[in-house]
């Protein structure tokens, strides 16, 4: 049963990723695109954890943690760039 459920969940997350991509291309302003990129990072993280469960391997958690950290840092860096024009005060 778990196998079917995981395929179903991967499909749902795939639709979510497609919606994020549409917003990334459409987004009328720059903050919209940053928000779409941030959501894309988080959804990719969820997909990687799902892959880890399917392959029964804990190796994927380090990758997921790194993606979480990089996503946060890049979002903050983009926002600071928009706010002040430079990243490090």
């Amino acid at each position: 049963m778990l196998g079917y459920v995981m395929v179903f969940c991967a499909a749902l997350l795939g639709v979510a990723v497609i919606l994020n991509m549409l917003r990334l291309f459409m987004g009328p302003d720059v903050p919209d695109r940053i928000l779409a990129l941030d959501t894309l990072y988080i959804n990719a993280l969820a997909l990687i954890i799902l892959l880890g469960i399917q392959q029964q391997s804990t190796l994927y958690f380090e990758a997921a943690l790194l993606i979480a950290v990089l996503g946060f840092i890049s979002t903050v860096a983009f926002s600071k760039h928009l706010l002040h024009g430079d990243i490090i005060d």
Binding site: V5, M6, F8, C9, L12, L13, V15, A16, V17, L19, N20, L22, R23, L35, A36, T39, I42, N43, A46, L50, I53
Partner: peptide, 17 residues
């Protein structure tokens, strides 16, 4: 738990869209 999690992720993306 998996289905609840992915449904909420999808709702977040729908909201974004």
């Amino acid at each position: 738990l998996l289905i609840v999690g992915s449904v909420f992720a999808l709702i977040g993306a729908v909201g974004l869209y």
